[in-house]
Design a protein around this nucleic acid. Sequence first.
DNA 1: CGCTGTGGATGAAAGGTTTCAAGAGCGTTC
DNA 2: GAACGCTCTTGAAACCTTTCATCCACAGCG
Lengths: 357, 357
Amino acid sequence: MSVDDEALPERSRRRRPPKPHAAGVKAVAAAAGVSLGTVSNVLNRPEVVSPLTRAKVEAAMASLGFVRNESARQLRAGSSRILAYLMLDAGNPFFTDVAKGVEEAAQAAGLSVFLCNSSEDVDREAAYLDLLEQQRVQGILITPIDQNSARLRKLPSRGTPVVVVDRAIDDAEHCSVAVNDVLGGELAISHLLELGHERIAYVGGPNTIGQVIDRRDGARRALQTAGKPLTNLIELTTGALTVAEGRGAGQRLAGLPADRRPTAAFCANDLLALGLLQQCVSLGLRVPEDLAIVGYDDIEFAEAAAVPLTSVRQPRQLLGRTAAELLLDESSNPDHEHQRVTFTPELVVRTSTRGTL
Amino acid sequence: MSVDDEALPERSRRRRPPKPHAAGVKAVAAAAGVSLGTVSNVLNRPEVVSPLTRAKVEAAMASLGFVRNESARQLRAGSSRILAYLMLDAGNPFFTDVAKGVEEAAQAAGLSVFLCNSSEDVDREAAYLDLLEQQRVQGILITPIDQNSARLRKLPSRGTPVVVVDRAIDDAEHCSVAVNDVLGGELAISHLLELGHERIAYVGGPNTIGQVIDRRDGARRALQTAGKPLTNLIELTTGALTVAEGRGAGQRLAGLPADRRPTAAFCANDLLALGLLQQCVSLGLRVPEDLAIVGYDDIEFAEAAAVPLTSVRQPRQLLGRTAAELLLDESSNPDHEHQRVTFTPELVVRTSTRGTL
DNA sequence: CGCTGTGGATGAAAGGTTTCAAGAGCGTTC
DNA sequence: GAACGCTCTTGAAACCTTTCATCCACAGCG
């Protein structure tokens, strides 16, 4: 779905200087006239070395352009100062907000965060998990595509703590931090039912993603609670949770004859909802008069949409922060107990369902 | 600007199993009844080891749950299979699109990408640069906050190739891939001038960011070209390039008496523009009748906004892909020459300036 | 004057992998 | 039947840092 136009760029060339060679602890020690161990002490326990020697060593490091080799450090010391968040979709502002929370907590603990993006691709997810395990990162935060993956369950037993983010998992291997998606689905559909809608579309997919399933189940439950038949929920399965797929769904929806077309749509996330909204509006449907729309996540752009979007809000940053804190606890506290933390979502009603009052 | 509500979560606890211990090449060799070297060969040059031995070794690896220690590998082999993209703001969809292009190119070359987020914070940027250098990543792609940073210029001479993304830099140290921001600014303002606007606001900041400066300079140049005084450009400086700051600017703008208020605003990016738009609309200004708005980047959400946004489009993914390709060339091709690639932006006109036709 | 304590520096070992020259086993060829 | 080639395997060195027990010099003290 790239909008890149292959504009012909101008290029300008320059020669490059010869390849350099790195200086190690040994070189620094020689330059400063001290031993290897002393240089290491300056690096790791500066307080035990006398100010004079320390100054000499630091001068030598500066003049040689010494850069500590983290591989060697980690190999010997055995520990990494890095935490990874493997995101489901970096293009979804929801996850970048979660990431913000993760970074916040990590920074407070003096760790750095590497972000990885699986783009809803199972193979990429697997490749990143392997890579991160091999890197011996301090821990992995992940919003998984398939939370039952064997690979995922094996990691903690091999020494890499894993915290599942935005999915509740009830197994003995990891902590998880989630928002009650079933409840979120119920909130959305109850709202639509209260407004008098009968035929409601559920737009989401693929059905391997836990969030998609739970939100649909919540939708169904709301119908049951209200004593409506499940056939009132028309499912439109998408290939991914993106704006483009949302547009596709909009196309399909708008193509239905008016008497069979749902009067409302509940989308598994805001990206789908925004795409759906855009497409429907451009095809001449009025929102919410012809079609009411509810999204999910309440991303920043939901409020600024063509028709401000009713959405199910989740505590995004808090989600990330909490997950990171659990991970940190797991990797530092010997008495750590795995936890399953569940937050409660909240419906934010805007024009896309309520109309202008 | 978090919308997190500190909803009280439910927590459930579980005991965790005892700590495991990792198996190395040595253990695998022993289990398979072969030598160290052979295990290493299975890992790195499977074709040279006989199918039988290979099978034995692989069985041993599986049963021991062997995970290669990447630190040790890298220490010995000297090379990393990782590429990093240090983003200016992971919350801006523009940069995640660029990242997508980077990932694409990296995957094609069999490398993995770690994303890092400086969040427009100089200290975080510096910390990540140090970290990545110590990690000996294969190369760094960066959209810098301050492109004249000494740290940035020192990296390549110490062996870590750096490509600057979305900034043109004319020095001998790195390649850069950029879009002509001055031209982009000109396009935006020329368009507004053609529509008859006289007093135009430029919304952007902080002024340490190159993109902000260039786009403003382009704006000024367009005024000069049209023979208008520079005082027609009213600068509203923001603290960051975010939706929230855009709302703040909207507040300031809407607060001006109508006869002194600009009739159009050009924002340094779409996030600002969307915030501005939202705030102005909610304060009762009509867009584009009372205030025309032009954004920059043409992110996916620009088209779906309350009033579809006129914006300056850049080839986002292509930018990332090209940058990654330059980096790969630099780290693998001994005859590499640094290049400065510049793409051309394009104005996309929508309702926020043109009105509904 | 000899002993102890102390702040600081030292040197060697260790950590897990890759590399590479050398070796082992075995079938072919003359 | 000896020499050769071939395929596969081996063992040890090397990568760079951290750690820790040891050592040194010197001050204070009895």
